Amino acid sequence: MAESAESSESTSTVSAGILTNIFLQIVQSPLNIALVGVILFLVYNIFKSRNKDVQVRPAEPELPKLKKKDFTVEELKKYDGTQADGRVLVAVNGGVYDVTRGKRFYGPGGPYAAFGGKDASRGLATFNVTAAGEGYDDLSDLTTMEMDSVKEWESQFKEKYDFVGRLLKPGEQPTNYSDEEDEQPSVTAEQPSVTAEKKKDD
């Protein structure tokens, strides 16, 4: 018992002696002191960078809601996120949506930036990001499955983003939207009301 106590004491004495020796060698050499200082500085920076709070980018100011209107292909192109206000519009299956709050996806530099200011229907249907056409696309050559995919995307856009109007076919007249209505276009001369048609029948 006494022997084990003595051996543990001698072990701790040896360990203390080694540490003292190392400490004296470091202190006696200015080069060693400088190296220890550099190591401590690097270790401090590593821990500091690991514990640093992730800086959250300040949120961009929210743009006022866009008044409903219909867009030609050329008018839609102006809303690709590169203009001063940074607004991004995307057309899906004839409807135009304000996707500005999803700008990191549809704005400049985003994975779907090719859809910004364009009709994304074909690209979404065919899973081809570069398939956003320059002119009006009637989608008539899409398969039933592809059109179903377009409709699914359309319903997602309706849920997530504000509907701001329709994409006009060449030669089509824009709808007159009133301030009160949500998504339904007002009755125009080209769209006679049901009651007007009934009167004609009577």
Rank of each mutant, 00 (worst) to 15 (best):
T11P: 00
E190L: 07
G95N: 13
D70W: 05
S12M: 14
E159D: 10
E60L: 15
K118I: 00
G109W: 08
T144F: 06
D182G: 03
E183T: 05
D70A: 06
S186R: 07
S149D: 10
D85S: 11
D202N: 13
E62V: 11
P192Q: 13
A91S: 15
E6H: 13
K68M: 09
G109P: 13
G81N: 06
M1Q: 09
T130V: 13
R122N: 05
D70F: 03
N21R: 02
G102D: 04
D137E: 06
F23E: 05
E172I: 07
K68Q: 05
R122V: 00
R122Q: 04
D138M: 07
Q184N: 11
T195V: 03
L124Q: 05
K200W: 05
G94Q: 00
Y106A: 00
V129H: 11
S193K: 03
V150R: 00
A5C: 02
Q55F: 12
L40C: 12
V187I: 15
K151N: 08
T143C: 05
D98K: 01
V38L: 13
P185W: 12
E134I: 02
Q156R: 14
Y161T: 04
F71N: 01
V88L: 08
L89E: 00
P30F: 07
N93P: 03
K199F: 14
S49F: 11
L66H: 06
L139T: 01
K48M: 08
V36I: 15
N45Q: 14
Y161R: 03
V194F: 13
D182H: 07
K69L: 03
V27T: 06
K52I: 01
T72I: 07
K151G: 03
T143G: 02
S49E: 11
F127Q: 11
K65A: 15
Y112Q: 03
K68C: 08
F115C: 06
V56Q: 14
E3V: 02
F105G: 00
T20A: 07
V73F: 00
A34C: 10
K65C: 06
M1A: 09
K52T: 12
K151F: 02
E183R: 09
K160T: 15
T188H: 04
I39N: 06
D80S: 04
V194S: 00
A16S: 13
S186F: 08
Y177D: 05
F41E: 04
P185Q: 10
G86E: 13
I33Y: 13
K78E: 08
E9R: 10
F105E: 10
S140K: 12
L167V: 05
I22S: 12
A125T: 01
L76N: 02
I33N: 05
E159V: 03
